[in-house]
Amino acid sequence: MRELQSLVNGVGLGALYALVGLAAAFVLRVTKIMNFAVGGIVVLAGLFAASSSGLPPALRLILLLLVGAPAGVLVHLVSTRWLEGRSQRPQEHDLGGVLVTVALATALQGLGYLLFGSDLRYATSVVPAATLSLGGGITVTTGTILLVAAVALGGVASWFVLERSGLGRALRAVSDDATTARLSGVRVSTMAYLAYALLGVLCFFVGDVAAEVVGVTPDNVFHIIVGALFGLVIGGGDRIVGPIVGGLIVGLTESVVNARGGQFTATVAQLGLVLVILLVAPRGLFPDRTSRAVG
């Protein structure tokens, strides 16, 4: 019973990592930078959601999604855009970009402490919270179901935007070769703003869901992004399915091992898994087929 319950618990945790991983993979594909600020944006959005107890949950979610776009643009202006104007060589930009996003994540964490304190906070659920029995003493919450649904929704939306829309093609073109894209008539700077606006919307959505289901505190900023990063390494960031499967594997590992051996053992197991994947399949379990054929 305990093992089955741990698996069900792990699905919920893994879905959260998958959602954050989707956001991180989105910006990674477009800007080629692993943006650690994603964890900070998610947590800050969650804290705002948890502190809006006077608003109906559905209205709160809509407002957050509306605020998400300009928030994402602001992150772009503070981090990548600012660096673009200052980097002398591309190599410097890559390293500097990552470091700036780490600094930004720390700053967002500090802002969270300043505005909301260090307490764990929960938001009122859009879908009324309930615990459902699966028989044999196993339970699943509506929150876990909501997280899984959010992963499916986020995955389909990301796939559509990146793979099937004109915007996605332009974003990928800029990502692959900005100069060629510019010569082809793509507005490179506009695409970057759009990418970050979409990232903001996705992060604010994840933040609201996280605040409803697992609660948020500024302490979570790096825990969330590290879990999602593990998932991204395991699944790979080339395809939408990568961070989803990777996140679920990380969540399930954490839940099952933690139940038997504690949090420390679970972290060691996750790191071991990441190490094995890096040795056996450096581009993750779901690498881009086109890249493999060419490379």
Binding site: R2, Q5, N9, L13, N220, H223, S255, N258, A259, Q263
Partner: peptide, 15 residues
């Protein structure tokens, strides 16, 4: 016993 910074203690409560 649990890690004070743990954000999920569902496995322990399951036990």
């Amino acid at each position: 016993p649990f890690d004070g910074a743990a954000t999920s203690l569902t496995p322990q409560v399951t036990q």
